[in-house]
């Protein structure tokens, strides 16, 4: 099982990435203190992007690559993943 995030900011992506790995860092949701240790990726990461039919990806996600802080998002989520 792999978790794919679409969160628009590095801050929110970090919260969701940690929620499905080490447990909800904000301690407000049902996964507080529960470490699922699931592999987590952002949909803008190349490992995910390359799995898609490219024209479909461009149609559905492509524009967000130029809108969001893609590099920061990739850095943030891959860091959480590597800390597992």
């Amino acid at each position: 099982m792999v978790v794919i995030l679409g969160s628009p900011t590095p801050e929110s992506a970090e919260i969701y990435a940690k929620t499905v790995t080490e447990g909800d860092p904000s301690w407000v949701g049902p996964l507080a203190g529960i470490a699922l240790k699931l592999p987590v990726y952002h949909v803008l990461e190349p490992e995910v992007k390359n799995q898609f039919d490219q024209s479909l990806y461009d149609d559905q996600v492509g524009i967000m690559e130029s809108v969001l802080d893609t590099d920061d998002l990739i850095k943030t989520v891959s860091k959480v993943r590597s800390e597992q």
Partner: peptide
């Protein structure tokens, strides 16, 4: 509070 800059994202779109 980690919810991002909403208008900026809309304008960039």
């Amino acid at each position: 509070a980690g919810s991002g800059n909403v208008p900026q994202t809309n304008y960039r779109l």
